[in-house]
Design a protein around this nucleic acid. Structure first.
Lengths: 218, 218
DNA sequence: TGCTTAAGATACGGTCGCGTATCCAATTTG
DNA sequence: CAAATTGGATACGCGACCGTATCTTAAGCA
């Protein structure tokens, strides 16, 4: 073996069957993109618990070798995939309009689901409370915390301008928007629709900021 | 082998080291409780992805045999553990007082975290968006949906009595409380403190129900 | 065109966990 | 106390996946 005509096998290789193309060999970014697609594909179909390097390699139409050349562990690979796909809340331009800014920041959280095929929070919580939270922290640090933080700042400045009631500029209100999106992704379906984001802004976050609301509670 | 004195080994068995007791053999419910403790222990320390039957057996001070006598698969075992440990929202007595009832129902969601060592939502989302959500559905069906449902009814009746604004009796407001608790458990720490539940009631849910709130939005 | 780099197939030993079978001993039952 | 039951310890074959090594060949570059 090894002396057999290799081209015969090559003709019906896995990759050919997947793309339908005559097996053009990918490199660099194109390959990387295919791998990341495969990662989220696998997360979605098999779940985090059952994701394997071999499965990802097969889904990407490549070999384990290629993966191990880039990442030492499964966690590294996933964390890297996230870093490439997750949006950056810090890059969201803020206008000063409370409604628009909160909406923009929540769409950022929404994008973190949709850009990862709805698996982002699956990842966060697959390791929740676990002793070694490897992947989990990537998402929290990269998207959720910054978004809550920025929403908090938006609220705080609005409160200083007197646009909203001062009590609304607290941690809980700032966290309410992201919480609703997470909830939706977990309970309903992985991908959060635009309409839901808008509904959260108008029926949850903004109502909490209006002048008279909640004065008698607390 | 097999003819060696078995008592010599028995003296320093795993179970003895764990309980400090002279290895009294458990049965029925006592054994079941030890197994469920071990399940949540393992979920917490190793995570859902790394939970194994052998690990649970070892942690419970028993053998795989005992587990397989009761459950066919890992998922069955975990689902059963949940069914035994999760609170029943339907059993919460409702008084008619909006604040008290919502508080009671949210404490039920809180209890679903704390009674499972904070692993309940870890489980929900470990399989979020996955093709075969085995364990996930148990928690959603058993606690989260009923709680949201009941909160919705409480709000609805309060709206009919004119105690809260009618728009607040919608799905989003009903879901906001549980969403905040899930968020906390995932982002901050697995176990949700009492004070946080109270803060959610008074700073999020109730403010959303007050008369004037949010009239101009949406 | 020839050289260098990296893709991708394949094979391999090793480990881990699965699920079963087997046997022994502790409880419970009558 | 004898019988029936169930807990508990191994042992074992099996398959999946890991991580590495090897080799061929396509892609990019000078």
């Amino acid at each position: 073996m090894g002396v057999v005509p290799a081209d015969a096998q090559r003709a019906e290789s896995t990759r050919g069957a997947r793309t339908g193309v005559v097996a053009t060999r990918r490199r660099g970014d194109a390959l990387l993109r295919a791998i990341f697609d495969a990662v989220f594909d696998q997360l979605r179909s098999a779940g985090y618990a059952n994701l394997t390097m071999e499965g990802v390699a097969a889904a990407a139409g490549t070999g384990k070798t290629v993966l191990y050349r880039r990442w030492a562990t499964k966690e590294d690979m996933i964390a890297d995939a996230l870093r490439h796909r997750l949006p950056s809340p810090g890059a969201v331009p803020l206008t000063g309009d409370v409604r628009a800014d909160i909406h923009a920041l929540l769409r950022c959280v929404q994008a973190s689901f949709n850009s990862t095929r709805g698996t982002a929070f699956q990842l966060v919580s697959a390791e929740a409370g676990c002793d070694r939270p490897a992947v989990r922290q990537t998402i929290i640090d990269h998207v959720v915390e910054p978004c809550i933080q920025l929403i908090g700042e938006v609220l705080h400045r609005a409160a200083e301008r007197g646009e909203i009631r001062p009590e609304a500029a607290g941690d809980l209100v700032a966290a309410s928007g992201p919480a609703m999106l997470v909830q939706y992704s977990l309970i309903r379906e992985p991908v959060v629709p635009d309409a839901f984001v808008a509904a959260v802004v108008d029926q949850i976050v903004l109502p909490l900021t209006t002048r008279s609301a909640g004065a008698e509670h607390g």
